[in-house]
Write a protein that binds this DNA or RNA. Structure first.
Length: 807
RNA sequence: GCCGAAGUGGCGGAACUGGCAGACGCGCCGGACUCAAAAUCCGGUUCCCUUCGGGGAGUGCGGGUUCGAUUCCCGCCUUCGGCACCA
């Protein structure tokens, strides 16, 4: 009777050995060992709310498999871990349950780290960092000051949604469909507030262009391109005479300028505030209360006439100026020229307000405009009603119109981006303080580097009360101005947590540096990250901000590269009984439950066997039971081999051949294809073969191979069995290499088809000649039965695969 | 509306470069062991027909290219995800 599989008996044992021997550490290079190529494997750092969930189980196991695989393939692999510790959930938990966000967060970190260690991921814990640690955010503040110096961080007034009852800023998601506050039901207002911004728009083109240099899945790149939203068109200038204002407008359709019959301002447009009309003021208040989605969903266009007119630079007409909420404040200039004949929205508005529709683009030789706007504008369409430009194809017409306006100083070709500057200040407590002092005489004064970090002070109350929670810390707020020494006040808003996660991967390279955020040589050695793993939900915000951050650091001479993530792998969602498992959902299931029941290795294997790791998957009891069964079987069969197979058996034979085939398959699946599920299948198939002949001459070789191949997935099991097979420290062993000589079979199976239909299979020598193969195939009874019918027209031979007779 | 992904047995999925559809696993069926059950082991399992030799159909639907299509092309349908009055 072989020994029962009992992971509790050896999983902890090996975790201790790894700890004692520093097995998972990735020391920085020194002169002696620089020969080893490096690989930086990184998963998006966890947000320490509650406990670990099955989504984490997937991401970090993918990273861990890659870490082991790359190490055993000769790479020096950095695989660090840290905590995205700041953020709203901890603050809300503190409000709800009492206690300090720091205590709550640190308690969660201890809990999650304990779970991680039980799962046995190889993480270089000597590099652990947490974003709420002053030793970390000190250098974030330092970098902010560098950005500020460069003019890349700035302060400006921008509209926010404001709840007059709660006296606080509310996110768009917190506004209900009817424009009321999710929490208290009061009607939300729009308010202009001073906020901090990073000048991301300066880097819009670079963010777009450099996507070509990274190895990411196309859909992820597509999302970023979408987000950046580059469009080509023209800036046109419209004169509003009574105000003496020239209003700039972006359009992608300069070809339709002659068809512009009115002009529209967004309700938030600065000019609107200067219009002295109760009707306009009422409309603006109404529009501001609506959330963006509600505006978009409106079936009827709404708006109000301002009494003003704008000059159409092409036609010389005075066009009425309206305020309407279908024009967005944060795209283009917040003002548009309206061309009802060739834009659906303008058309709807014109119909509601009985405004003229003038056709200026028509398909060549086509009918005049019907009851709907005409949207085409390619080579096939020509301009009409457009003065000197009549008859030109639409694209060329547009270009000529812009050229003329340019000569007149009333327009120019332009490129517009959808992406906005990054507003990063938050009226919240639990975040990185912004190192700024406001002084009545000097204005906005940066805190000197020597006074960093500006440490987050303790406060009593985290609830919003019309001012940021930090404003309560009066001793902290009131300081003397670093510049003139007069009375000053600290900035009481904190940084968006996306700032924290924009550079954490750099700090891992030099985590305890007290003189600088990091040493450039170390950062340049490890970066860019060779493999970044995470959810698609971070495909836009986080991964755009981090790219922006690195580009700025590069321009500042602090790092030697321009892209943080050379390759990216996006993992799927894990569900349990249809409930989405993420930090946003409540019903997350802690992997501890399954580790208790099946052992860490079985859970690791199972999560990667559920399906392709980049697709969504559902965790089920049945799947876990199935994997537990395989692990027990694996254990039992290898132990049986250890007892019964000859110690110095052959390393050639059917099992050895199967082992080599499996090496080739698993190496390709893990290394190139990231097909973790099929790699596990291949190992299972090898074990199935091994089970048929565990005492065979080459069984020991096959068993050792299976153990070696499963090690990245199930490192405890592999290590224990490796030892029982009489060896030591599998993790120090190089990854096995498939012997090409053994991969070539002596006999191969050839499929024989008649008219593309399979009729027979032949076992033939691998070296068989084409002629001999064909005559052998024809001789087959099953084949000739189908050849009788007609005359043989064609014979197709695919070497090593099949013969097809066409009759 | 725009962008993206995906449709294969009862289920998760495999088939990588146009070449034997359904690997591997779950579930289910049968058998062995057992007083019995669990566990374990062995065998079977796409569907339909069958005289048990085999025959036919089959990868969302309709066409096409090809000796040969899950794979390539054209046109649809469905589901999921992202952005969404983006001028």
């Amino acid at each position: 009777m072989t020994e029962r599989y009992d992971p509790k008996r050896f999983e902890q044992k090996w975790q201790r050995v790894w700890d004692d021997e520093g097995a998972s550490l990735a020391p920085n290079p020194d002169e002696a060992s620089e020969a080893a190529p490096k690989s930086y494997v990184l998963e998006q750092l966890p947000y320490p709310s509650g406990s670990l969930h099955m989504g984490h189980m997937l991401v970090y196991t993918i990273g861990d498999v890659q870490t082991h695989f790359r190490r055993r393939n000769g790479y020096r692999v950095l695989h660090p871990m840290g905590w995205d510790a700041f953020g709203l959930p901890a603050e809300n938990a503190a409000i709800r349950e009492g206690g300090h966000p720091r205590e709550i967060t640190e308690r969660n970190i201890v809990e999650i780290k304990r779970s991680m260690k039980r799962i046995g991921w190889w993480i270089d814990w000597s590099r652990e960092l947490s974003t709420h640690d002053p030793l970390y955010y000190r250098w974030q503040q330092w970098q902010f000051l560098k950005f500020l110096e460069r003019g890349l961080a700035y302060r400006k007034g921008a509209p926010v949604k404001w709840c007059p009852n709660d006296q606080t800023v509310v996110a768009n998601e917190q506004v209900l469909a009817d424009g009321t506050c999710e929490r208290c039901g009061a009607v939300v207002e729009s308010r202009l507030m001073e906020q901090w911004f990073f000048r991301v728009t300066d880097y819009a083109q670079a963010l777009l262009d450099d996507l070509e240099t990274v190895d990411w899945p196309e859909p992820i790149k597509a999302r970023q391109r979408n987000w950046i939203g580059r469009s080509e068109g023209a800036d046109l200038v419209f004169r509003i005479e009574p105000l003496g204002e020239d209003l700039r407008v972006f359009t992608t359709r300069p070809d339709t300028l002659y068809g512009a019959t009115f002009f529209v301002l967004a309700p938030e447009h600065e000019l609107v505030a200067r219009i002295d009309s109760d009707e306009v003021r009422d409309y603006v208040r109404l529009a501001a209360a609506k959330k963006t989605e509600e505006r978009a969903a409106a079936t009827e266009k709404t708006g109000v006439f301002t009494g003003l007119h704008a000059l159409n630079p092409a036609t010389g007409e005075q066009m009425p100026v309206y305020v309407a909420d279908y024009v967005l404040t944060d795209y283009g200039t917040g003002a548009i020229m309206a061309v009802p004949a060739h834009d659906q929205r303008d058309f709807d508005f014109a119909r509601a307000f009985d405004l003229p529709v003038r056709e200026v683009v028509r398909p060549e030789g086509g009918e005049a405009l019907g009851a709907e706007p005409y949207l085409g504008h390619s080579e096939g369409e020509v301009l009409v009603n457009s003065g000197e430009f009549d008859g030109l194809p639409a694209p060329e017409g547009g270009q000529r119109i812009v050229e003329r306006l340019e000569r007149e100083g009333r327009g120019s070709a332009a490129i517009n981006f959808r992406i906005r500057d990054w507003g990063f200040s938050r009226q919240r407590y639990w975040g990185c303080p912004i190192p700024i002092v406001y002084c009545e005489t000097c204005g906005i004064v940066p805190v000197p580097e020597s006074e960093l970090p500006v440490v987050l002070p303790d406060v009593e109350d985290y609830k919003p009360r019309g001012r940021p929670p930090l404003a309560q810390a009066e001793d902290w707020v009131n300081v003397s101005c670093p510049s003139c020494g007069g009375p000053g006040q600290r900035e009481t808003e904190t940084m968006d947590t996306f700032v924290d996660s924009s550079w954490y991967f750099l700090r891992y390279c030099d985590p305890s540096n007290g003189e600088a955020p990091f040493d450039r040589a170390l950062v340049d050695y490890w970066n860019p990250v060779d493999l970044y793993i995470g959810g698609v939900d971070h495909a836009t915000m986080h991964m755009i901000y981090a790219r922006f951050w690195v580009k700025v650091l590069n321009d500042l001479g602090l790092v030697g590269f321009r892209e943080p993530f050379a390759s990216f792998y996006s993992n799927g969602w894990v569900t349990i009984g249809k409930a989405k498992i993420s930090k946003r959902s409540g019903g997350a299931v802690n992997p501890d439950v399954f580790v208790d029941r099946y052992g860490a290795d079985a859970v690791r294997l199972c999560i990667l066997f559920l399906g392709p790791a980049n697709q969504d998957m559902e965790w089920t009891e049945e799947a876990a039971e199935g994997m537990a069964r395989f692990v027990r079987r694996f254990w039992r069969i290898v132990l049986e081999v250890a007892e019964t197979a000859p110690a110095n058996g052959a390393d050639a034979g059917p099992l050895a051949r199967k082992a080599h085939e499996t090496i080739a398959k698993v190496t390709d699946d893990v290394g190139r294809r990231f097909a973790f599920n099929t790699a596990i299948s291949a190992i299972m198939a090898l074990v199935n073969e091994l089970a048929r002949d565990p005492a065979g001459e080459d069984a020991r070789f096959a068993a050792e191979t299976a153990v070696s191949l499963i090690q990245p997935y199930a490192p405890h099991l592999a290590e224990e069995l490796w030892e029982r097979l009489g060896h030591d420290r599998l993790w120090t062993q190089p990854w096995p290499i498939a012997d090409p000589a053994l991969l070539d079979r002596e006999t191969i199976e050839i499929a024989v088809q008649v008219n593309g239909k399979l009729r027979d299979r032949l076992q033939v020598a691998a070296t068989i000649g084409e002629e001999e193969l064909v005559s052998l195939a024809r001789a087959s009874e099953r084949v000739s039965a189908h050849l009788n019918g007609g005359e043989l027209r064609k014979t197709i031979v695919v070497p090593g695969k099949l013969v097809n007779f066409v009759v």
